[in-house]
């Protein structure tokens, strides 16, 4: 069914995407299509190439080969077009430690060209549940609070596509639960979400489709629907071991 979809229905379309660092091939001919509004989770062990893939999708790195289109923008020829429609949440918060939550979101709003950056910052900081800490410095925030604020930073320009690179890293149980609720909220906004993780429990919950990246290659793809958690765990171990 998905093969019959036209290119325009895909928010993320990667064809034969490769990335080399000298003699080391981090990504080898990745083909991936993510539909508009879809939540796609890409699993893989450490060193599989997940972060490199997200860096290329977000234009922080250039592919060595292949073609990448994000919401119709060629990622190499039109990186600013891609940056304007994507938001990124990583394991690092990408926030200024010595600015307050409000100052951070206002700053990034300005850099994204948001008209009312002040108003947008207040709205988003409230939305991620940090309204009472709005004027506190980020350096005084817990890891979980920083990650929630990182979500506010990532959606300050209301992007249609969110790229999440191991966003649960370093979160305690409470932090992970709160962050999970935020992901549900983002999914209900009908944003296209691509998340990478090595944690099967966190990754499967909200996904519409899943894939496994190992040794720089896509070794498995499936719809989430009908996919049993234990069966997927077996598939994961087997595919990662083979790669």
């Amino acid at each position: 069914m998905r093969d019959s979809l036209t290119d325009n229905t895909y928010d993320i379309k990667a064809e034969g995407l490769g990335k080399s660092f000298g003699p080391v091939e981090a990504l080898r001919g990745i083909d991936l299509n993510v539909e508009s509004g879809e939540f796609y989770t890409l699993f893989g062990p450490n060193g599989a190439g997940k972060t490199t893939f997200i860096k290329i999708l977000s234009t922080l790195a250039k592919p060595s080969s292949g073609k990448l289109t994000i919401a119709g923008h060629d990622a190499v020829k039109d990186p600013d077009g891609v940056r304007g429609v994507t938001g990124v949440v990583s394991h690092d918060p990408f926030l200024y430690e010595n600015l307050s939550a409000f100052e951070n979101i206002k700053f990034f709003g300005t850099m994204y060209g948001v008209q009312d950056a002040d108003g947008r910052a207040v709205e988003l900081i409230d939305r991620v549940g940090l309204g009472k800490r709005m004027h506190d410095l980020v350096r005084n925030f817990s890891r979980g609070m920083k990650q929630r604020l990182a979500v506010a930073r990532a959606i300050v320009h209301d992007p249609g596509i969110l790229l999440l690179d191991e966003p649960y890293t370093g979160l305690d149980q409470h932090g992970a639960r709160v962050f999970g609720e935020m992901l549900s909220m983002l999914k209900s906004d009908r944003r296209t979400i691509l998340m990478t993780t090595h944690n099967i429990e966190e990754g499967l919950d909200r996904s519409d489709r899943v894939g496994i990246l190992a040794g720089g290659r896509m070794v498995y793809e499936s719809l989430r629907e009908g996919l049993d958690r234990e069966a997927f765990r077996e598939i994961y171990i087997s595919r990662v071991g083979d790669a």
Binding site: R83, Y96, E97, N98
Partner: peptide, 18 residues
């Protein structure tokens, strides 16, 4: 070095800014 704390500079580079 201050830009590198928390990799804030990557947040800056993610914005569509010349």
């Amino acid at each position: 070095a201050l830009e590198k704390e928390g990799n804030a500079v990557l947040g800056l580079l993610l914005t569509p800014t010349d």
